[in-house]
Design a protein around this nucleic acid. Structure first.
Length: 466
RNA sequence: UCCGGAGUGGCGCAACGGUAGCGCAGACGGCUGUUAACCGUAAGGUUACAGGUUCGAAUCCUGUCUCCGGAGCCA
């Protein structure tokens, strides 16, 4: 093992050159036997979508025994000569010189055979599903997107900020929190009948973060440009193909950005991410284009190259009301735009990404900046065709008095946010930010319909296995 | 949480009141520089669970559980 010089299959295939001696390690996808006294083994090591075809013949030491152990799923190490392939489907293939079986996979019991498996079934075997083409490809794209996120912001002078996972602030309105406690749930300490959180680990009630935004604002008021990229938790009982209880969110926060700057950055960001995967994940995207969504590559290129539509909430409402489209929910100024409305705008009216901005203040949280009209706030949502909302953001209220009155209007105790108000008391600055749900981006980039298939180990109500 | 759909061999499906069949995978045999390989043989199911209706239930009814789609909430 220690002297091993393994070459990733990706490298062998992309170079496409013969080589007298190479070593590969990986898992068997299929084996096809020839009575000519040899077998074709398709080996995959996860470095890329494609397999390396290996020719193993009876001249190998103890070939009979080995062959009996080589089934779909077995893990092998093979050394040999890389030669130009006689077959048409690959440029190079390997003629095995030495073959070692690391681990067998009993075909009677191995759940992943060389046949189609539904994504629903694969979810039940989340410990084995990374060995499939689809999940492997998703995770390579996901990884590339994560890398691109950092590239994008670092290239633009942003500081990567780690905001806390455990927190006592709940970023009002973002969602239900998971509670974090070390109290004995059978007999918690009580004062006046209520649970006494002074006795809890942190001396107060704490939970898992639902957003790093407020902490992001703190650091933007010092470092100017910051972004967070980390796990986020929502204890909502939502059962949809677009929600997870644990998901990854990217939240940039920028001092001296107004809402227009914010929207421009959001658009540039999405286009950058798509450009990166189009450039670097070609085989995987091609696979999705064939197997998952025939229009995927066209859609991605279109979104990457087309300017997003900008429309304010009031005009969007007018447009929806004037349309002859029948909606399940009536459209009224002051109400939330429903999924069907958003989809209609992005898919039917504009047929491209749409940014809706200047929402009624009553349906948005306290921290968004009030407009001159006193009725709307500087909020924006980016909607993608098929997927719906992928980004929500706003310019933040930077005026101390206005913010205080917003607390009062929403019935929030300003004492809870004394530090947040301090940012407006001392050296306040106009600033903006947004949040992008990373898994939704992976969904959009791959065309995979259910969000549970774009994260290695999905967490959703009643599901925390693996 | 609400609305709709579905649970049948390992997986994907059929049979929709008359006693369960096909494809794939797996086993065995044959054939082949094969590549979603191909051909043949045998094997594999108390039809999610618990009750009920009926001469008879996978099929109809009730309840429970699970999964999928949609809605709400959002990212």
């Amino acid at each position: 093992m220690s002297e091993l010089r393994r070459t990733p299959i990706k490298q062998l295939l992309s170079e496409g050159r013969a080589h007298p001696s190479v070593t590969v390690q990986g898992w068997v996808r299929t084996r096809r036997d020839s009575k000519g006294g040899f077998s074709f083994i398709e080996l995959n090591d996860g470095s890329c979508l494609k397999n390396l075809q290996i020719i193993a013949d009876h001249t190998l030491a103890s070939w009979q025994e080995l062959q009996a152990k080589i089934h779909t799923g077995a893990c092998l190490e093979i050394s040999g000569e890389l030669i130009e392939s006689e077959g048409k489907k690959q440029s190079v293939e390997m003629r095995a010189g030495e073959l070692k079986v690391f681990g067998e996979a009993d075909p009677e019991h191995y759940p992943l055979q060389k046949k189609f498996h539904s994504l629903e079934y694969l979810r039940e075997i989340a410990h084995l599903r990374p060995r499939t083409n689809t999940i492997g490809a998703v995770m390579r794209v996901r990884s590339r997107l994560a890398y691109a996120v950092h590239q994008f912001f670092v290239d633009r002078g942003f500081i990567y900020l780690h905001t806390p996972i455990i927190t006592s602030s709940d970023c009002e309105g973002a969602g239900e929190m998971f509670q974090v406690t070390t109290l004995d749930l059978d007999k918690p300490p009580r004062v006046d009948g209520a649970v006494d959180f002074k006795e809890d680990f942190f001396g107060e009630k704490t939970g898992l973060t639902v957003s790093g935004q407020l902490e992001g604002e703190i650091y933007a008021m010092a470092l100017s440009l910051v972004y967070t990229f980390g796990p986020t938790f929502r204890a909502e009982n939502s059962h949809t193909s677009r929600h997870l209880s644990e998901f990854w969110m990217i939240e940039p926060e920028m001092a001296f950005y107004d809402l227009e700057n914010d929207m421009d950055l959001a658009e540039e960001f999405i286009k950058y991410l798509l450009g990166e995967v189009l450039e670097h994940c070609h085989d995987d995207l091609e696979f999705f284009n064939q197997r998952v969504d025939k229009n995927l590559l066209t859609t991605l290129a279109h979104v990457k190259d087309t300017p997003f539509e900008h429309i304010d909430y009031t005009k969007a409402v007018e447009l929806l009301r004037k349309s002859n489209q029948k909606f399940e929910y009536a459209v009224e100024w002051g109400g939330h735009l429903q999924s069907e409305h958003e989809r209609y705008l992005a898919e039917t009216v504009f047929k491209k990404p749409v940014i809706i901005y200047d929402y009624p203040e009553k349906i948005k949280p306290f921290y968004m900046k009030m407009n001159q009209d006193g009725k709307t706030v500087r909020a924006m949502d980016v909607l993608l065709p098929r997927l719906g909302e992928i980004i929500g953001g706003s310019q933040r209220e930077d005026d101390y008095e206005v913010l205080k009155s917003r607390f009062d209007a929403k019935g929030i105790d300003p004492k809870e946010y004394w530090w947040y108000l301090d940012l407006r008391r001392f050296g306040s600055a106009p600033h903006s930010g947004f949040g992008l749900g990373f898994e939704r981006m992976v969904q959009f980039a791959t065309g995979v319909e259910n969000i549970r298939d774009v994260i290695p180990f999905p967490r959703f109500p009643k599901h925390a296995k693996f």
